[in-house]
Amino acid sequence: MKIKHTFAVAAIVLAAPVLAETVSPAAVVFDEYGEVAQSLTGVAGNPERGVEVMTNRGLGNCIACHMVTDLQDHPFHGEVGPSLDGVATRWSPEQLRGIMVNAKNTFPDSIMPAFYHVGPYIRPGDAFTGKAADGELPPLLSAQDIEDVIAYLMTLDTYYD
């Protein structure tokens, strides 16, 4: 696992000059299992910034549904989704990227919203106003937000009793 992780990071670093441009939501390539191999930005994720994305209600708010022992300083973790403790030992960055971009490619009936996706949606609204969206909606998170969360999740290699 450790070796694979190192290799993945090395690959991103090597590829960075080529992949400097951000992959648009519509251009993301999934494999048959819903994985996304290519970094969305070519820029290595920042795990500290990933914590901000995961805990901020205006960003990912991941802990609304997922319990993370490492983030217990932030109150009120949900239980709609699985705990993310030890997540780095059971998922690869490519799998996590695929799940975050659009979990329904991995788990067809998942309740999890697609965080790097632009529809089509049924009755898309303008954020939390209840009014109709004005044109195509931007994705819920930016490409770098996703990479930052992946970087943080890959540090979660511990299970707690």
């Binding site: 802990i63 973790h77 949900g78 309740i111 949606y121």
Partner: peptide, 21 residues
């Protein structure tokens, strides 16, 4: 519905008794 793609059932049938935040 919506950008979060949630139905009534997602929360109130599949996840009642769970906490969301």
């Amino acid at each position: 519905t919506g950008q979060l793609e949630l139905s009534c059932a997602n929360c109130h049938e599949d996840n009642y008794d769970n906490y969301i935040r």
